[in-house]
Computed example of a mutant assay.
Amino acid sequence: MAEKILQVKDLEVSFLTYAGEVKAVRGLSFDVEKGEAVAIVGESGSGKSVTSQAIMKLIPTPPGVYKNGQILFGGKDLIKLSNKEMESIRGSEIGMIFQDPMTSLNPTMTVGRQIVEGLMKHQGLSKSDAMKRAVEMLKLVGIPNPEVRIKQYPHEFSGGMRQRVMIAIALACSPKLLIADEPTTALDVTIQAQIIDLMKDLQNKLDTSIIIITHDLGVVADIAQKVIVMYAGKVVEQGSVDEIFYNPQHPYTWGLLRSVPRLDSKGHRLESIEGTPPDLLSPPKGCPFYPRCPYAMEICTTHFPDETEVVPGHKTYCWLQHPDAPKDDVPVKIGGAHNGR
């Protein structure tokens, strides 16, 4: 049985604002195994980035609050650790690649110094040894002339090169888990492909587990072994990448897949998911997707769906897949959404 690097159990994260409590993550559970790449996908506002920040304990409290759940890493519940204890884990055992490298890198420090800091702090290396390791890391992530580039500042690098520097910083101390929050969003397509290839190569070489946060299903298909589909702070479906792409069971997952361009389908218009995500100040009582779902039934408006295991490891939360659900009746159309898969 594969070793579980990370276990997230019934995680609930809220933000206490003047307008009320924003329930950003609601009962999230998933595992990450050693050497596995797990993708968390969904629209903006679905709770993906909050989940990654919650694992790293980067959510400011207040206004953020961990209302329930556990984040188990190396036998420890990260939620219960102090800031000082978390500082010893961040960078050394869990690395993170942030969404925008230009705002994440310190513009007043050379990239070499930013890599060296973590190595000296977490691995106790001397400055000279840490600098040698930093050069090796820049070379590893494909930056040419690392001995020269290590003395340069972030503004002297292109967007793709800055993202490579972020990856070098995140991997410098050989963490067991790498969290990549939208690592390719601000990059053009060719650079995106290079970054994904780099992450896959490093995963194979270092046996690092990866959590990748994205809304790009093309990236998911290329790197992930397991997919978690989030909507309105909840998991609506999770399973292997093959199961999610070729045997999706939730109407939200169907909508996401229909919105992706296909090379084998000429002349077919892309379909969008009509409507907008719910207000998490007052989320729906039942399935959060029902106002936008063309298959919604009466029960969807009042009760969140039970878990249905399609095949081992593939779970969905949809009343359509419940064993007692009618199989022949066309579900009631709600909210003006078009019918038909």
Score class of each variant (00 low, 15 high):
Val41Asn: 06
His155Cys: 03
Ala24Gln: 13
Leu281Phe: 14
Asp279Val: 09
Gly69His: 02
Leu320Met: 05
Phe289Glu: 02
His122Glu: 00
Lys151Ser: 14
Asp222Ile: 00
Tyr246Gly: 03
Val13Asn: 07
Val8Phe: 06
Gln99Glu: 05
Pro101Val: 01
Ser46Met: 03
Gln192Trp: 00
His250Ser: 08
Ser126Tyr: 00
Gln53Ile: 10
Leu11Gly: 12
Gly20Thr: 10
Leu320Cys: 04
Gly160Arg: 03
Ala39Trp: 03
Asp207Glu: 15
Pro251Gln: 04
Met297Arg: 15
Pro248Asn: 10
Pro183Tyr: 10
Ala19Trp: 07
Ile97Leu: 11
Phe98Ile: 06
Ser158Ile: 06
Ala54Met: 03
Asp306Pro: 08
Met1Gln: 10
Val332Leu: 14
Ile71Asn: 00
Lys127Leu: 12
Ser14Val: 13
Glu117Asn: 07
Gln321Gly: 01
Cys300Leu: 08
Ile196Leu: 12
Glu33Met: 05
Val41Ala: 06
Leu320Lys: 01
Val111Thr: 04
Ala186Trp: 11
Gly218Thr: 14
Lys266Cys: 00
Gly160Ala: 01
Glu43Trp: 00
Ile196Trp: 08
Ile59Ala: 04
Lys4Asn: 14
Gly218Ala: 11
Gly42Glu: 13
Gly239Cys: 06
Asp279Ser: 15
Gly286Ile: 04
Pro63Gly: 13
Asp201Gly: 01
Thr108Asn: 05
